[in-house]
């Protein structure tokens, strides 16, 4: 396997480089782009980021594993990130999580056999006022109820994986 930047990403990163005092600043932006391209961070992608920024591969690996939004393994098409922190817990995140587990037939940390959904729990998503919430990939869903979760999953399943 190997990794090549898409020309758009490459151009964006080159432009971004001008904005910072050092190319080292590009680690996070570049890792985001790798993840966008591959769906996760492959070691080859990490190597490309090291090359771009002047850090070593190991250093970039250390960074990639520090941040919870970076994945070193492929994920389901939709990563369901259910907020588990206090305000959501006070407002029924437990019910939502149980409902998801039952409907998808998987536990937290698992992916459905068809590769569609990965179920995760995350810490406070900064939307405590609309608890309980969950983020599906980059989209926030608020005021969840078991019914709204069902509707949401139905729509996502219908899309058959195309984002």
């Amino acid at each position: 396997m190997s990794f090549t930047w898409t020309s758009a990403h490459r151009a964006e990163l080159d432009a971004l480089k001008e904005r910072y005092p050092s190319p080292k600043a590009l680690v996070l932006p570049a890792l985001w782009k790798v993840q966008e391209q591959e769906g996760f961070l492959s070691l080859e992608g990490i190597e490309a980021v090291a090359e771009l920024t002047g850090y070593s591969k190991a250093e970039v690996y250390g960074v990639a594993t520090f941040y919870t939004m970076f994945h070193l393994q492929p994920q389901g098409t939709y990563t369901l990130q259910v907020c588990k922190t206090l305000s959501c817990a006070l407002n029924g995140q437990g019910t939502i999580l149980d409902h998801l587990k039952e409907r998808l037939g998987i536990e937290v940390g698992e992916t459905t056999p068809d590769g569609q959904f990965t179920l995760t729990q995350v810490e406070c998503l900064g939307s405590c006022g609309t608890a309980p919430v969950m983020q599906v990939n980059d989209t926030l869903h608020e005021h969840l109820t078991p019914e709204s979760v069902d509707t949401l999953l139905d729509t996502l399943s219908d899309k058959g994986g195309s984002l």
Partner: peptide, 15 residues
């Protein structure tokens, strides 16, 4: 590098 975070941190080379 140090990989992981918190009490799951560990020392490693890149795999």
């Amino acid at each position: 590098c140090v990989a992981g975070r918190g009490d799951h941190s560990y020392i490693t080379t890149i795999p």
